[in-house]
Design a binder for these strands. Sequence first.
DNA 1: AGCCACAGTTGAACATGTTCAAGTCGTGTG
DNA 2: CACACGACTTGAACATGTTCAACTGTGGCT
Lengths: 246, 246
Amino acid sequence: MGSVTHTDNGSSPAAEQAARGRAADTSRGEQTRQAIVSSAIRLFGEAGYEKTTMRAIAADAGVSVGNAYYYFPAKEALVSEFYLELQREHLARVEPILNGGTSFGDRLTAILREGIEVWAPHHAFAGRFIGIAAVPGSPVSPFSTASSESRELATSIFHRLVDSTDVKMDPQLRARLPQLLWLAQLGLVVYWVHDTTPGQRRTRSVVDLAVPYLEYLVGASRMKIFRPLTTRGLTLLEAVWPRAAG
Amino acid sequence: MGSVTHTDNGSSPAAEQAARGRAADTSRGEQTRQAIVSSAIRLFGEAGYEKTTMRAIAADAGVSVGNAYYYFPAKEALVSEFYLELQREHLARVEPILNGGTSFGDRLTAILREGIEVWAPHHAFAGRFIGIAAVPGSPVSPFSTASSESRELATSIFHRLVDSTDVKMDPQLRARLPQLLWLAQLGLVVYWVHDTTPGQRRTRSVVDLAVPYLEYLVGASRMKIFRPLTTRGLTLLEAVWPRAAG
DNA sequence: AGCCACAGTTGAACATGTTCAAGTCGTGTG
DNA sequence: CACACGACTTGAACATGTTCAACTGTGGCT
């Protein structure tokens, strides 16, 4: 119970500029930081989380161990960078899909599939990643305030998807659907991580089966017969996950 | 990708008798083992996972550090013992509920509530626990073959609940409901771990709201109008989670 | 130029999970 | 009884994440 504030943004000496526009920063510190990040990402990808030691990362980046800790409070924080990298790639891959003119379901399938594809080369690493992300208070936790930026980034994908579809659905559901889809994607990743079928084939087929079902459910939400089901479900959702908080 | 077999049962020198009837074993080794386990459980409960060092556990149990590793392959394995302890207590608390004559929903609520109650004193610790349990291949993972015994123990609770209810529902759903409820409980624990409301009040109110909704859904499953929804849902479930495998 | 403040950097020291070669103990056997 | 063998135990050694006091360079101010 000792350390209460795990969401310690701003305490890191190099964090004041972290929130915005780091890409434009070309100062010495930023170069070092980048060297550490890219070394960490590469080594994580090559050897996994456990086998990549902080000493190895520092050596690869050409800095001392202590210096790595000047920029990152812990090894876990470097995992967060790895995650950001993947998320950026997902976003890039998803862009043409969102702009494409296919159906809601097809686009959702494509988005989820790209999510899997981005992670695919790192299935072993992802196992450890999940373990780190699952602990509450960890900056990598998808529910933490520290990751709110990347969370909003991710939900924005589904926001755009939902906003641009003309599929008829309950308006309240429409308002909540982006968050729900984000949650579904989260669950999918967890499922994928535990999927031991070769190449995680099962996860892909689950996507192909689940999306049409989701589409069906969403369409059904506005039908009179399903009214109580929809309404009660949304009420429950509001209790579980109030629109305001995370 | 190095170590493939994480489910290494039987490799531990003291594990051949681990599967059954350890309570009856009174040999020297078993006493030592028990001393380590109870020290670990107590210290975990008192100080959390991180702050409880292996040295502290060993000292408290009156043995050497190396000796602890003779019985347990890693610190994580001791967490598994902690989990078992809680599960046993949950089972004990649930017994009178299952034998009670209240409705399906009331009993389900009571079961889930007791699950929360058992964990309640260890909310902080549970955060770390989730992190360990979430990594695939970990013996503590609820999906691992290593924890199949405790998993079947847990599902047996819901099996008994479902078998003893006369709530009308789709027969296929009935066949799958115990597993689904177990999964729901898992999700509930994850939710509870991340619940930062004082005393995790929100989780409790979620239970109170979700169970009636579940009851409603289950009842609706046999109605003709919901037929496609039910059938398609069960088909999807079979793809996601084949009846045979985990 | 001289100097100051501070970002950046270092490597040794520390804490703790884990391993291992060696030692001890108890029990069955000749 | 003496011995052998295996279960059990030990503590030092090791690996690695993390901390920290000291050092260095750099840019700005007088």
